[in-house]
């Protein structure tokens, strides 16, 4: 009986998690965009933008390893975004 209740609880938790995912998956794309804007603001000097000043960039650089690696991967996959967009929207 206890085991059955545990499985039911687990099942309900998965359902709840899935529903939360369903309710927010599309606006996660917004987070994507905001991260790109953040990267541009903080690492613009790498692409020739004069903001922020190079000195500031160098000081924050040690804290930016995750962002650099994520942006690197994203820019490598920029020619392959369509299917991700299509997968994000429900279409069938």
């Amino acid at each position: 009986m206890g085991r059955l209740l545990d499985s039911l609880k687990r099942g309900f938790r998965s359902f709840d998690k899935g529903m939360r995912e369903d309710a927010t998956s599309l606006i996660r794309k917004q987070l994507d965009e905001e991260e790109s804007v953040f990267a541009l603001l903080t690492m613009g000097a790498f692409s020739g933008l004069p903001s922020p000043p190079t000195g500031v960039l160098l000081r924050i650089l040690p804290h930016m390893s995750r962002e650099i690696s994520v942006m690197n991967k994203r820019s490598a996959g920029l020619d392959d975004v369509f299917s991700q967009t299509l997968g994000t929207f429900d279409i069938d």
Binding site: S14, F15, G18, E21, D22, S25, R28, E35, V70, D90
Partner: peptide
């Protein structure tokens, strides 16, 4: 964000709802 491991039951529900 895009790349994030998901519980297989949650991913099943999400994938099924998409297709």
């Amino acid at each position: 964000c895009d790349y994030v491991p998901a519980n297989k039951f949650v991913l099943f529900g999400h994938h099924f709802a998409s297709i």
